[in-house]
Design a protein around this nucleic acid. Structure first.
Lengths: 338, 338
DNA sequence: TCCTTTTACTTAATCGTTTTCGTATCTAAT
DNA sequence: ATTAGATACGAAAACGATTAAGTAAAAGGA
């Protein structure tokens, strides 16, 4: 690896001059600067990012936290798309991304925060994690510029998929298709679930929809057997719903299986809707009507916000940014208007 | 951030002594060592990884390359699972992973290799990329320990999903279910496609299966409309196949839609099989019979091999490691034995 | 007892940058 | 002619670690 020293020798100047020339400082003669740049180029010079970071306390590296728990983050369409968009956004601005973890085999296990400090990340994006764990609490209090996805901490910027608006849009869409008996199998308790559930009830009230108690129940996210069970239960009701909203698209398929097993057709006999907008759902018959979250915008906003926090800490305000999705109209919700 | 210097002052020893104590060198008194470690702990010392890397030329950071092209890598089940497993494996051994890219906004665009050199990655995993591009060629010639996934370069270790064995197993399974007219809609030309296709023909020959020319055709990976078209074509043949193998699970749904549209039932009227083993395919009726690639093992082997190349460059041999998958038995392939 | 080892540290150089002061030369102003 | 102000560059310290080489004290051997 050729260093600034090598260039300084080749050019017959000091390494200070080389550094200034390559970084476009203004106390350098334009001739010298041009010459040094040319030589650096010819010699194949590349800045040593560690040395640079050591001096400047800026790594141009962003830590991304994906929970370690059983196959969750990376392999989840929603998070993967958000990460993909986030990655593009920050890389465009010269930042790299590294996964935050707490392994560090060489000594004892270290915490997330310790890992981030040790690596000197300029900022952190907490995309998918157990937001209620001690370690995450410690991390967000660590005074490193941070954004979180879909979770609000005090004094930390958050990028939120607008679940309130989303559920309202979805339910309203279903209502406008003529449905008056709508069930909602919601996910396990979490901030996200709370938003969707309360929005479901509020919107229903506004629409003067009556929601019997039996019409809402819980099935963990992405769990098809739970939605299968719950769907069977709903189908057995005297007053069966005309449309069922599922916790998420993946889980919806558990319900769809139950419905088909009963010999019912979608959407002719009963309608279903999902939440997320995973790709595959648009390619399977019936194509799933769902609230497609705007993962691209979520990732992009998160990246932009984080970089702004890093580069202009004084003037960037901490805020929650809500990103709206849109109803993706598949053919799983029938129009039953007379 | 507390540094070794701070500790050395607090302990009244030199920073060299601190360094040795914390790194368990043996020319340190056991009392002193214990004391220094205790103080370091109390002061919340964390090693500065940049400084360490600068001196030791080891970053404990691995570069992972995912192609930048339109929504491919991260959001693809197969690669996401492999990456997830890879990540777990290397993090367990104290390595972090950072995505390789070629953006670097602050000067001109730099190549992948330049990025890796600049960041000082200890090793590189090329998971998903255009293996025939100049930039990748340059990267693998860059003399950084490297493993590639599903592609063989001269003198570079490769972790390969065993497509030959996989297709043989899949076709044999289908054969044993009684099928004698099997069509294969294969993916676009690539090393992977070649392996599967030639294995398909070879296995067919061994099984004395006749494969009419019209039974094989191309549809790009993950493209449901292409498989829809091709499936329609196959269904229109005088001698229609009894089973169709698709390029991948995702694309299979295009074919399944075509079949359902024709009013045919799976597997009663016609059987289908996929390739990959994406999760969702196990949760949709009919559950898809497919060759499930062993993504966990692929990622793990890749991680282990790479670390071995990094830590024991002399004694680690460059090799291709083939990882076998297994036939996941859904209910999309009928048993038509009499 | 004297010399050699061993033990336990310290000194100082180094990794590759950045950046603060200098300082020498040149220009312009008085 | 003298001085003030730019301009262009260099010297050296610093970032936070590692490590080779040196040294003083303690231990061991004859």
């Amino acid at each position: 690896m050729v260093s600034m020293k090598d260039i300084s020798i080749a050019c017959g100047v000091s390494v200070a001059t080389v550094s200034k020339a390559l970084n476009d400082h203004n106390d350098i003669g334009s001739e010298t600067k041009k010459y040094i740049k040319k030589v650096a180029d010819e010699m194949g010079y590349l800045p040593n990012s560690m040395a640079k970071a050591l001096k400047t306390h800026r790594t141009y590296n962003i830590g991304v936290l994906f929970a370690e728990e059983a196959y969750s983050g990376l392999t989840h369409d929603y998070y993967a798309f958000v990460l993909d968009s986030f990655k593009r956004t920050v890389e465009e601005k010269g930042y790299d991304i590294t996964f935050v973890n707490s392994s560090k085999a060489r000594s004892e296990r270290i915490s997330y925060l310790e890992h981030c400090r040790s690596r000197g990340f300029d900022g952190i994006a907490i995309v998918c994690a157990d937001f209620y764990s001690q370690e995450i609490m410690q991390l967000v209090r660590g005074n490193i510029p941070t954004v979180t996805l879909d979770h609000i901490f005090n004094n930390i910027s958050a990028i939120m998929s607008d679940n309130v608006q989303g559920m309202q849009d979805l339910l309203t869409y279903i209502y406008e298709k003529g449905h008056r008996r709508v069930a909602f199998i919601h996910g396990a308790d979490s901030a996200v679930t709370q938003s969707r559930l309360s929005s479901f009830y509020r919107t229903a009230a506004q629409l003067k929809l009556e929601i019997p108690d039996e019409y809402t129940s819980m099935a963990p996210y992405r769990n098809t057997s739970a939605t299968y069970q719950e769907t069977m239960r709903l189908l057995d009701l005297k007053e069966r719903p005309t449309c069922i909203i599922y916790p998420d698209d993946f889980a919806a398929f558990g319900g769809i299986n139950a419905i088909k097993e009963r010999g019912l057709r979608i959407p002719d006999d009963i309608s279903v809707a999902g939440y997320d907008g995973i790709r595959i759902a648009r390619h399977i018959e019936p194509t799933l009507t769902t609230l497609a979250q705007n993962t691209k915008k979520l990732g992009q906003k998160a990246g932009e916000k984080l970089i702004s926090l890093i580069e202009h800490p004084k003037t960037t305000l901490v805020e929650q940014i809500f990103v709206e999705g849109h109803v993706y109209e598949g053919n799983s919700v029938a129009d039953i208007n007379v």
